[in-house]
């Protein structure tokens, strides 16, 4: 491959008033990684270019940055796969303040992680003689979540963080998963209640950016989905998110379909007058345009089959007993 233009974001906090892009030309060696390209540019063209790096083996997570608008690990990516019309554009991770060039201030990430107490809290009243052991099956439950290398790629591209910096964020929710599902941890219920608070697990939109950008098997969205299920099983249901999930369950079980008149009211809470008044204007707008859902509920044909499936699972969850067992909102 011939010369490629590297269009790189340049900025120094406290010195520059605005960021700019600087272009560097480099002939790509076959098989070269993006990180090695940066090393070559810094080594032979511009020693002032700043970026983080350490292991070069996708283990330490320091070289995360954005290439062509998406977060990735520079050491894990072939430069040739990124060339678009002869150009590779590099930016610092999104959703962070920039310190210099491709180096961001990760403090918001660390302070979010601290909120979910990312350490094991075992039952100290029963000190064991030796380390607490796990079976292979117990470890398997947290296997994926433990692979997180804290690179913040998920954080960079999270669509919710773009509009709300107080959201716990995908890596933090995946880290919470790792302790919620750890067989040696004794604070599961407390952790589930914390995570179900506003700006927590229910604030994720499932946009899927986190899992798409994650360079490991952590795949935060999948972990978020598992945490939500654990929240429901544990009966932590006093939040709009949990009521929303119960509304889906009830609606599918009764009608086979989603009842769009029932669901918003159920999610808001039947006695949440302020919340219910808040959804009134959109309802009126839709009624005026004949867009509002029909008042009479729509039932699918053979809805009895769906009811039987749900009934069977109600029995299964009751039989399972352990693991929380409670299946609130059911018969």
């Amino acid at each position: 491959m011939g010369d490629v233009i590297f269009r790189i974001y340049r900025f120094e906090a406290g010195k520059d008033s605005a960021p700019r892009y600087q272009e560097y030309k480099l002939a790509l060696e076959p098989g070269i990684t993006l990180l090695n390209c940066l090393n070559q540019i810094r080594g032979s063209q511009d020693g002032t270019l700043a970026y983080r790096m350490s292991c070069g083996s996708a283990i330490c997570g320091s070289c995360a940055m954005r290439a062509n608008g998406h977060a990735l690990l520079a050491c894990k990516t072939q430069a040739s796969s990124l060339v678009k019309n002869g150009v590779i554009q590099l930016d610092p991770l999104g959703n962070f303040p920039v310190l210099r060039d491709l180096v961001v201030d990760l403090e918001p990430f660390w302070s979010s992680l601290r909120q979910v107490k990312p350490w094991l809290q075992p039952d100290t009243s029963d000190e064991p003689e030796r380390e607490r052991l796990q079976t292979a099956a117990e470890f398997h439950r947290i296997d994926y979540a433990t692979t997180c290398i804290l690179c913040a790629s998920c954080w960079s591209d999270c669509n919710v963080l773009e509009v709300d910096k107080k959201f716990l964020g995908p890596a933090t929710l995946a880290k919470a998963h790792r302790y919620i599902f750890d067989s040696r941890d004794a604070k599961t219920q407390e952790r589930l209640e914390r995570i179900a608070e506003p700006r927590g697990v229910w604030d994720c939109t499932h946009c899927g950016e986190c899992s798409t950008r994650c360079p490991t098997e952590t795949k935060p969205l999948a972990r978020i989905e598992e945490v939500r299920e654990a929240v429901m099983i544990a009966g932590v249901t006093r939040s709009p998110g949990a009521r929303h999930a119960m509304g889906f369950r009830e609606s599918i079980k009764w009608f086979g379909a989603l009842n769009e008149n029932y669901l918003p009211v159920r999610s808001m809470g039947f006695f949440n007058i302020i919340g219910l008044l808040g959804i009134l204007p959109v309802g009126l707008r839709m009624m005026r345009k004949r867009k509002a859902p029909p008042l009479l509920p729509h039932f699918i044909d053979k809805v009895g089959e769906v009811r039987k499936i749900y009934k069977r699972f109600h029995e299964l969850r009751k039989e399972a007993g352990g693991g929380g067992g409670k299946y609130e909102g059911d018969e």
Binding site: E225, E229, H244, G256, A257, K302, I309, Y310, R317
Partner: peptide, 26 residues
């Protein structure tokens, strides 16, 4: 498919992933 049930919109599966998969498998 007037006899097919709601897909669950990614929410039913967060309540109970297997019941949602059975409904969709149907």
């Amino acid at each position: 498919m007037s006899d097919a049930a709601c897909c669950g919109a990614g929410v039913a599966s967060e309540d109970n992933v297997m019941v949602s998969d059975v409904v969709n498998a149907r």
